[in-house]
Every structure is written in C-alpha cells, then in structure tokens.
C-alpha cells in the first residue's frame, strides 16, 4: 500500500535507529577493538595470544567447565521439581512463589550468602552444634557453584515446567494403562516431550553462567575466573580494551555455539 509509506517511515525511524546504534554498531566496535592493537593498526595478535598463551585458553575451558557443572546441577534439581509442580492442584500459586525470588535484586540475594556462609554465619553455627567444626565456606569454588545454582534455578525450572505442563495428560495415562513403569514413562515420554523446555533452560542458565562476574568477586573470592570476570578485569583494571574485546568476542561465539546446539528442532503441530 502506497499511502501507508509515510506512516511506515514514522514507525520505522526510531526502531531502525535503535537497531543500528545499539545492536549493529556495538558488535562492529567489539570486533574492531579485538582486531586492533594499542596503535590502532589491524592485527590478529589478540586472538593469537588468546590461543597460545597459557592464561586465556585454560581460563576459557575452566569457565565452560564451571558453567557446565552449574547447568547440570540446576537441571537435576529442576526437572523433578518441575514434574512434581505440574501435578499440583494450586499450580499457579506455586509458580508465583518460584517467580517471586527472581524479582529480588541479584546483588541482594548474593549479599545474603555473604552472611549465610560466613565464618560465624548460620551454616557454620549449625555445623558446630553438630560437632562438625567451622569451615571456610566462602571464597572458594564450591560456594561459587552453590550460589550460582541458587541464582539460576528459577530460570531452568520455569521453561521445563512450561513444557511438561503442555504434555497431553492422556499420553501419560495411556502409558500407565499399557503397563509402563513410572521410570520408563519419565525417561521415554516426559523427558523427550519436554526437551524444548530443557533446551531453553540450558540457554537461560549456561550462557549467564559464563559471564557471572560479580559472583566471582563477591563469593568466589577471585579463585574462580570466568570469561565474564576476565572481561571485567581487562576493561576496568588493566584497561586493555583490545584483549577484553577479544574475550568478549569469544564469549559471543560460545553463546552462538550454545544457541546452535540447543535450538528447537522439528517443530510439530
């Protein structure tokens, strides 16, 4: 329709300018920074250093490893919980209760663990009353994983719950009537039928886990280095933006790979 064109331009301008300035240009700038050195000339040295130095590549693998562990644990907690949740009577209320903690500022929740896990904190008091002695619970790998799992849990639970909830209850009834054991129903029906929810859960947990940098400082005591904390280090502390951008590009690539492997396949309807 030709008479629509002026209105179209009016609607297009703010949105397209946003796309250009805040989506396309920033990616371009990141790529540009990663491909240049301090003098501003083009070079692949940053990527070369990333691959050859004995700092960056192990750090990246470490970060992926931690993110995998965090994702796996959140999945193992969430899947049964989502399954139970989908069978409850007051599902909506329970669902609200799971969503509610996500509305509380992440930093506040992280801060709570500084108190919970501290040397004289409640967990250590419980330990000592049971004669287990007090331990250094903060500033190590375990506390980092624990708090990360806590923060990411709802983002794994909700998509899995949504997809389990969409499964036709008649299918499950049929499987029971035909004599399938509950474990078989779970592994051969519920799991494959909720795979898309699981995939979105993995996306929602794995990618942020690669970049959690406030957790590494506050809870991990800088013993854990993630891609995110390496980027922060290069941009804020050492001010080496070129290397920082290179790591950011690697992080984006890691994200793209994750998205590729967890994409929805074979949509039937």
């Amino acid at each position: 329709m030709k008479d629509n064109s002026r209105a179209k331009i009016f609607f297009a301008i703010p949105y397209i300018s946003w796309l250009a300035v805040f989506v396309i240009v920033p990616i371009g700038l990141l790529i540009y920074q990663s491909l240049t050195n301090v003098q501003g000339s083009f070079t692949l040295a940053n990527f070369h250093e990333f691959i050859t130095s004995n700092v960056y590549l192990p750090m990246a693998f470490n970060s992926v490893f931690y993110a995998l562990i965090i994702t796996l644990i959140t999945f193992m907690i969430s899947f049964p919980a989502a399954y139970v949740l989908s069978h409850l009577k007051h599902r909506q209320l329970w669902l609200m209760l799971i969503i509610l903690p996500t509305w509380i500022n992440v930093l506040l929740k992280t801060y709570a663990f500084l108190g919970l896990l501290s040397k004289s904190g409640i967990i250590n008091q419980l330990f000592s009353t049971f004669g287990l002695g007090t331990h250094n619970l903060l500033f190590n790998h375990v506390s980092f994983i624990f708090v990360a799992v806590y923060l990411e849990l709802p983002f794994m639970l909700l998509p899995i719950y949504n997809s389990i909830n969409e499964i036709d209850p008649d299918i499950l009834k049929a499987s029971r009537d035909l004599g399938a054991k509950p474990i078989n129903t779970l592994s051969q029906l519920v799991f494959p039928l909720s795979i898309n929810g699981i995939k979105s859960g993995i996306q929602a947990v794995f990618i942020p886990s690669l970049s959690l940098f406030m957790l590494t400082t506050l809870i991990g005591g800088n013993k854990v280095m993630t891609l995110g904390s390496a980027i922060e280090l290069h941009f804020i502390v050492t001010q080496n933006w070129h290397m920082g951008s290179t790591i950011a590009i690697i992080l984006i690539l890691a994200m793209a790979v994750t998205m590729y492997f967890t994409r929805e396949r074979g949509k039937r309807k």
């Binding site: 920033p26 700038l29 990141l30 942020p208 970049s211 951008s245």
Partner: peptide
Amino acid sequence: PDVTIGVSFLI
C-alpha cells in the same frame, strides 16, 4: 551476555 552488552556500550 550482559557483560558483552556493557562493554560494547562502554566502547
């Protein structure tokens, strides 16, 4: 990841 958004906007 929000870190990459943050640094690219900073640049």
